[in-house]
């Protein structure tokens, strides 16, 4: 069958990027409350907030 190689490559890169976010999320979850609050203040962009789920 015809294979969408460009799309497959894009999705692989997206998956790697998602894992980078997951690792950051897990570190954030273990961060002290003060640091979490500072990061929450920094993440003013709604889209960023939704992606890295700081709030």
């Amino acid at each position: 069958m015809r294979r969408a190689w460009g799309l497959a490559l894009f999705l692989r890169l997206r998956d790697w990027g998602a894992w980078a976010v997951i690792i950051a999320e897990s570190r954030l979850a273990k961060a002290p409350p003060g640091l979490k609050r500072r990061l929450r203040d920094i993440s003013r962009l709604l889209r960023l907030k939704r992606w890295i789920r700081i709030d």
Partner: peptide
């Protein structure tokens, strides 16, 4: 070949259709 899609992140359903 295997493609992985984490649906916990925003995605475009058209990607799945195009992968076929």
């Amino acid at each position: 070949p295997v493609t992985f899609l984490n649906i916990g992140f925003p995605f475009n359903p058209a990607w799945i259709t195009r992968l076929d």
